[in-house]
Design a binder for these strands. Sequence first.
DNA 1: ACAAAAGTGTTCAGCCTACACCCATGG
DNA 2: CCATGGGTGTAGGCTGAACACTTTTGT
Lengths: 246, 246
Amino acid sequence: MNEPGGPGAAYDKHAYEPFAVTVDLAVLTLRADALHVLLVERGQEPYAGHWALPGGFLLPEESAETAARRELAEETGLADVTGLHLEQLRTYSEPGRDPRMRVVSVAFACLLPGPPDPYGGGDAAEARWVPYDAARGLAFDHDRILADARERVGAKLEYTCLATAFCPPEFTLGELQRVYETVWGTALDRPNFRRKVLATPGFVEPVPGAARLTGGRGKPAALYRAGPARTLHPPLLRPSREGRPA
Amino acid sequence: MNEPGGPGAAYDKHAYEPFAVTVDLAVLTLRADALHVLLVERGQEPYAGHWALPGGFLLPEESAETAARRELAEETGLADVTGLHLEQLRTYSEPGRDPRMRVVSVAFACLLPGPPDPYGGGDAAEARWVPYDAARGLAFDHDRILADARERVGAKLEYTCLATAFCPPEFTLGELQRVYETVWGTALDRPNFRRKVLATPGFVEPVPGAARLTGGRGKPAALYRAGPARTLHPPLLRPSREGRPA
DNA sequence: ACAAAAGTGTTCAGCCTACACCCATGG
DNA sequence: CCATGGGTGTAGGCTGAACACTTTTGT
């Protein structure tokens, strides 16, 4: 054990090398049928001029989730970030990941419906949406965090209802399908996708009587809202990953 | 943003209220066909006399994973903890979860083959294996961490090869099936389980010529080793969760 | 001989896939 | 009238659930 204040010892809060605790956010969205991530340009060393995931230090009375939501509001400039899907990824704690001091960072993934407000307001005017494939060479270990975020989101699409987090409050099944296709990078059969989604109780609920013209062309599509279900049973497996092809 | 050392300010490492960073371990194993967890009895306030998950503070040059493995070795007294499956669960950071100071804890789940060495050696002589169902009223928020660990492990059995982490190096398919049945709390059909496991390439590999008598009774079972595969495609879904029953 | 556990075979329903086809709208 | 996207139908292969059955050991 490594318990502070061992037998009979009153420990000193400041006796240890202090750890800084931060949150890092992989904020993902879909713009023009491509996965985008919100990045900020660093203005100071280390990694001055590099792009990085938005994030910041925990305030004394904040949990990591609270801090993440606060940073999210600051970076995106969105008026209302309640209800946005925020998911803890994992914690990165390797010594030396920040050259200045020990920084332990709790990483989150956040999905928001696209296209969102183009750029962050508030005090992060240099925030930009960058296509996922163009987001390389990030500061610190943010390349890895971003890759972990994408992998996690892709995996959770298979067995949760997470996909609706990328969609506006009312959406068409075509839009929902494009979420899967964009994140997975594979095409799906439309009739089968439709049946699968509608057969899962609570995944989506029809909006009575409503229909939306899809970019002008084609038949107007029925609108749906996200339902109360959180998990997909059975899952919607992405095709041909490995192992299945005989 | 909440960047330390803002414009022109040299920050002070000790200027902030320090955060302590700890690891907490949910060490799970199977003893006598029941899920058990390793607990330690606290000798000091807060929660003196309560049971708690083993854990401790990060040393200055340790990552959370390194600290977790060090604690694991200390608490279990096992000579070799390399190769044991250690999985980061999530990080618990609510203010007030430790009444003494801000403690941010990175939780891990660890699976080990049972029955392991009965009690911890080293400096944690009061460590005990406790049946999962009897582990209630733990110190801090450890009830929740333990519940999260069980849920995560149960879910990962579905789509990963994690179950072999509960088994010794060589095991029978019956033992592997009992892992699933114990963690999930459901009975599985033996013939179907067998086919499913053997049909997944890389899940298990037969040990040539070997066989083990299973508790004396019954036909000797063939022995298998864990294979190189890490994921199960398609997954082995636990039955009757919800949604599927028509 | 019986119980217990391993291992094999077979059947059947339901899902998933694939592809053909119709509908509504804008240009 | 054609391109585009939404929506419906259907035949076939495959998986997985259920269960009957055989094999090998200990008592």
